[in-house]
Computed example of a mutant assay.
Amino acid sequence: MSAKLVSYDSLNPRQRQQVEAIEVHQDQIKFSGDIHGALHTLLSKPGPGVKGFALLAEDVPVAFLLLKRPPALPVWADEHSATLHALQVDQRQQGKGYGKACLLALPAVAREAWPEIRGLELSVDADNAQAIGLYAKYGFVDSGEAYKGRIGYERRMGMSF
């Protein structure tokens, strides 16, 4: 598998169309949203606080994610971190290690985008055991805090550099 996490800004027009065609499994939409919501967040108010990244496999986008920094950083996040949002692997490409590839590449692309950050954080639904396990496997540590989120309780996880 040859996959590379690249900035959305670096995609050509065809690749941007392919990102728009990413399909999230129906069971995962409640956790990650869909690609249209993620792209709306990225493109509706462009600025330095939100960056999009696509995972390319053979130059075709198979996954997408957002990273946020101030002024778009969520209230629960540490000001010295970037936060991960809307990690979405196309349902037609799941089971091929693309989620893992995103998480392995994430620290380097986050530091390249914002060299001053000291870590990454994310919020994950407490009921999403599969995601919690995946994040933990690739270096995110559960803070032990649970709080009321948009669809139930959420856990905060982080990774320091």
Results as ranks from 00 to 15, higher is better:
93 Q>L: 02
75 V>P: 13
75 V>D: 15
89 V>F: 04
103 L>I: 00
73 L>W: 07
67 L>T: 05
85 H>D: 04
70 P>T: 11
100 K>E: 15
129 A>L: 13
90 D>C: 03
74 P>C: 03
105 A>I: 00
97 G>A: 01
91 Q>R: 10
126 A>M: 05
102 C>F: 01
90 D>V: 01
128 N>Y: 08
98 Y>P: 04
125 D>I: 13
109 V>W: 00
120 L>G: 01
130 Q>P: 11
68 K>Q: 12
103 L>P: 11
122 L>R: 02
121 E>G: 09
97 G>D: 02
92 R>T: 15
111 R>G: 07
74 P>Y: 01
120 L>E: 00
108 A>K: 15
93 Q>S: 11
88 Q>W: 00
84 L>E: 06
90 D>E: 07
127 D>Y: 11
87 L>P: 06
107 P>Y: 07
77 A>V: 03
131 A>E: 05
88 Q>G: 00
99 G>R: 09
100 K>H: 13
117 I>N: 02
100 K>Y: 10
106 L>A: 02
82 A>G: 02
129 A>V: 13
128 N>G: 08
79 E>R: 13
88 Q>M: 07
75 V>A: 15
108 A>G: 14
119 G>P: 11
86 A>E: 05
103 L>A: 05
91 Q>I: 10
68 K>M: 06
105 A>V: 09
116 E>S: 08
93 Q>W: 06
123 S>R: 03
109 V>I: 06
118 R>C: 15
73 L>D: 03
86 A>T: 09
74 P>M: 03
99 G>W: 01
96 K>C: 12
100 K>C: 14
123 S>I: 12
101 A>Q: 08
120 L>D: 02
97 G>K: 02
115 P>I: 10
92 R>A: 12
68 K>H: 09
86 A>D: 09
76 W>Y: 08
116 E>P: 01
72 A>V: 06
124 V>E: 06
113 A>Y: 10
123 S>T: 03
101 A>L: 04
80 H>E: 15
116 E>Q: 08
73 L>M: 11
123 S>D: 04
78 D>P: 10
106 L>Q: 05
100 K>D: 09
118 R>K: 15
81 S>T: 15
91 Q>T: 12
130 Q>D: 13
70 P>H: 11
91 Q>G: 10
111 R>W: 09
92 R>Y: 08
124 V>T: 11
93 Q>D: 09
69 R>G: 08
103 L>G: 07
107 P>W: 07
111 R>K: 14
